[in-house]
């Protein structure tokens, strides 16, 4: 059971959160300019790294804020937590 640090409420049990998948997927500003393949890439394609992963979580049962987490998908270690709009902190291999 993960213990996740909400940037506002602090450490809370995983059961209070919902998972939002990969972070930093930006909605295209002009969807019509995209080919079907480009749109499908935005819509469906996600990285699935073994190791550090930037992902979105929401403190659903708490303050209802969405935020970002850098989590190691092997050890489940949470390396960093940062708010929406903030630059991802440097966690060494985060750019892998």
């Amino acid at each position: 059971m993960l213990h996740i640090e909400c940037p506002w409420c602090g450490q809370r049990d995983q059961t209070e959160f919902s998972y939002g998948g990969e972070a930093h997927i930006v909605r295209p500003t002009d969807p019509d300019a995209l080919s079907d393949a480009q749109w499908a890439d935005y819509l469906f394609m996600r990285t699935n790294p073994r190791g550090r992963h930037r992902e979105q979580w929401c403190h659903t049962s708490g303050c209802r804020r969405w935020f970002n987490v850098v989590r190691d998908t092997v050890s489940y270690e949470i390396l960093a937590v940062y708010r929406v709009g903030e630059t991802p902190p440097d966690t060494d291999a985060a750019a892998d």
Partner: peptide
């Protein structure tokens, strides 16, 4: 509600 909050907070703040 969660869906709308997500767009509001993460995409259209």
């Amino acid at each position: 509600l969660g869906w709308m909050e997500r767009w509001l907070q993460t995409e259209w703040p």
